[in-house]
């Protein structure tokens, strides 16, 4: 199994949903529109991915890039990018920066996250290794997100607690010869 397949299988095991698309603004726009179901959506603007990829998506009227405090508190869907993803756990890594990625990914009930297939690394520990991601994993602050928020404190397992109850991952892939699917 290659890293992408492994990532998809483990992310699904962690109760995330996953879609893989071609790396262009049109495909990404289609995937995001399908996932946001035409509702109002908070978009933090990418920390690491090429902003060009989101150029069509941000022109949609439902997309809010500069939310008011109230919008930040109540809008239930959010889109961010992630600087890397982990194959063995199906996790995505969202930066905590000047940008609003982190609040958007924690205050909403549905978090849609976009990753580049080339940033999938084998195991969580590799985030902290200089051999991967050109040392980006050692960036200052970030969250490794594995599936939606959950608790077993009230008895049975419940998804959707203080964080999102749904996590949807969009992988953009160059579909080069290595990954013909």
């Amino acid at each position: 199994m290659d890293l992408i397949e492994k990532f998809i299988s483990n992310a699904e095991e962690a109760a995330a949903t996953v879609k893989i698309i071609r790396a262009n603004a049109n495909s990404l726009n289609d995937a995001l529109i399908a996932a946001t179901e035409n509702e109002l959506v908070l978009f933090a603007g990418p920390d690491d991915l090429d902003p060009e990829l989101f150029s069509i998506f941000i022109s949609n009227k439902n997309v809010i890039t500069k939310p008011t405090k109230e919008q930040l508190s109540i809008i239930s869907t959010g889109v961010t990018d992630a600087f890397c993803a982990v194959a063995s756990t199906g996790s995505v890594c969202v930066s905590i920066t000047k940008n609003l990625s982190s609040p958007v990914s924690m205050l909403t009930q549905k978090h849609i996250v976009v990753i580049d297939s080339r940033t999938i690394i084998p195991r969580p520990r590799d985030i902290f290794s200089e051999n991967y991601l050109e040392g980006k994993g050692l960036k200052r602050s970030f969250s490794i997100i594995t599936g939606p928020s959950a608790t077993a404190d009230m008895g049975p397992l419940v998804r959707g607690v203080h964080g999102p109850g749904k996590l949807h991952i969009i992988i953009i892939d160059s579909f080069d010869e290595m990954h013909v699917r």
């Binding site: 405090k69 996790s91 609003l100 602050s141 970030f142 969250s143 490794i144 594995t146 939606p148």
Partner: peptide
């Protein structure tokens, strides 16, 4: 008993994130 829990947060506070004042 999970591969990772939902959130593993690595932070170097004070954060760069602007104060939200919600």
């Amino acid at each position: 008993g999970q591969p990772l829990t939902s959130y593993t947060n690595i932070i170097e506070p004070p954060l760069d994130l602007p104060v939200l004042n919600l």
